[in-house]
C-alpha cells in the first residue's frame, strides 16, 4: 500500500533533460546558439560560401557601395567585403580557440594546484595571479605585443596569457568548494595519490564553470583580438581580419560608411551570440544563479 505514496527517486536521465529544458526555455540562449553556429559554419566553409576571392582587388571599384554582386560593397582596395567578412570568421575563430586553450591549459592547472595544496604554494600562486590582474583589461596583452612584436601568433599568445589569471581564479574557487566534499575525502582515505585525485575528481568537477566562462570568454577574446587588429597590432595585411578591416575603413567613414560598418557589425553579432549562449549555459548548468 505504502509504495504508491513513496516519492520515487528521480531517474538519472531526467537531470540532463532538465538542463536541456531550461536551456531551450531561454529563447535568447537559442538565438545565441544559432549565431554561434552560423559563425562556425562561415569559418569552416568560408571557401564555399564566399562569393569572391577575399584578396582579389580592383582599384577601379574602390569603396563601391553594396550591390547584388557585392552585397556589402567593396573596400578601399575594391575587395568584396562580404567575402572578407566570411573569411574573417576563420581568423576570429582561430584566435578565440587558441586564446582559450592557452588560458585554460595554463590557468586551470595553476588554480587547481593552488587550491589543492593550499599553504605556501597557494600564497605564491595567488600573489602571481593578483599581479597579473593588476594590468587592467587589454593592457597586459598590449604590453606583451609590444615586447613580442606584431603578428597573428603573438596576438594569440598575448591575449591567451592575459586570460591565465581568470581561469586560475575560477578553477581555484571551484576546487576549494568541492575539495572538502566527501568523495574527495573518501578517495584520500583509501590512499589515492594527489595526482589521481586531481585528475579523477577535481578536474571534472571544476569543469562546468570553466565551460561557461570559456563561452563568455570567447566573446572577450574575439573583442580583444579585433581591438588589437584595429590598432594595427594584429595579423599582417592583406589577410582578412575584422579589426583590421574596420581600421582600413575608418579613414573613409565620411564617404563610404559600409567599409567600417559591416566588419564591426560582424564582431558585434558574433560577440553577442557567444554572450547569449554563455548566459544561457550558466543558467542551465547552475540553477542556483537562476532568478
Amino acid at each position: 500500500m505504502e509504495e504508491i505514496f513513496d516519492k520515487a527517486e528521480k531517474p538519472k536521465w531526467s537531470q540532463s533533460r532538465e538542463v536541456l529544458h531550461r536551456l531551450s526555455k531561454r529563447i535568447t540562449a537559442m538565438i545565441g546558439l544559432v549565431i554561434v553556429l552560423i559563425f562556425l559554419i562561415s569559418a569552416i566553409f568560408a571557401p564555399f560560401l564566399a562569393l569572391h576571392d577575399p584578396l582579389e582587388h580592383s582599384l577601379g571599384h574602390m569603396l563601391a557601395k553594396p550591390s547584388w554582386d557585392y552585397p556589402l560593397g567593396r573596400d578601399e582596395l575594391g575587395r568584396c567585403i562580404l567575402s572578407r567578412v566570411i573569411y574573417g570568421a576563420r581568423i576570429s575563430l582561430l584566435i578565440g580557440t587558441m586564446v582559450i586553450s592557452i588560458g585554460v591549459l595554463l590557468g586551470a592547472p595553476l588554480g587547481i594546484i593552488s587550491a589543492y595544496y593550499g599553504g605556501k604554494v597557494d600564497f605564491i600562486i595567488q600573489r602571481f595571479v593578483d599581479t597579473m590582474l593588476a594590468f587592467p583589461g587589454i593592457l597586459l596583452a598590449l604590453t606583451l605585443i609590444a615586447m613580442l612584436g606584431v603578428g597573428l601568433a603573438n596576438v594569440m599568445i598575448a591575449v591567451g596569457i592575459s586570460t591565465i589569471p581568470i581561469y586560475a581564479r575560477l578553477a581555484r574557487s571551484s576546487v576549494l568548494a568541492i575539495k572538502s566534499r566527501q568523495f574527495v575525502e573518501a578517495s584520500r582515505s583509501i590512499g589515492a595519490s594527489n595526482f589521481k585525485i586531481i585528475l579523477r575528481h577535481l578536474l571534472p568537477n571544476s569543469l562546468s564553470p570553466i565551460i561557461v566562462q570559456s563561452t563568455l570568454h570567447m566573446a572577450t577574446a574575439i573583442l580583444w583580438a579585433a581591438g588589437l587588429g584595429f590598432l594595427g597590432l594584429g595579423i599582417n595585411p592583406p589577410t582578412p581580419e575584422w579589426g583590421a578591416m574596420l581600421n582600413g575603413g575608418r579613414l573613409y567613414i565620411r564617404v563610404a560608411y559600409h567599409v567600417a560598418t559591416f566588419p564591426g557589425l560582424m564582431i558585434f553579432i558574433t560577440v553577442l551570440g557567444f554572450n547569449l549562449l554563455g548566459d544561457g549555459l550558466r543558467d542551465a548548468l547552475d540553477p542556483r544563479l537562476k532568478t
Partner: peptide, 22 residues
C-alpha cells in the same frame, strides 16, 4: 545592456561619430 556588453568599443565610437558628427 547585453548589446552594450557585446559592442566593440572602436566600432561603437565610429557609429556614434557617423550618426552624431557626420
Amino acid at each position: 545592456a547585453l548589446f552594450g556588453l557585446s559592442m566593440p568599443v572602436f566600432w561603437l565610437g565610429l557609429m556614434l561619430m557617423l550618426l552624431f558628427s557626420i
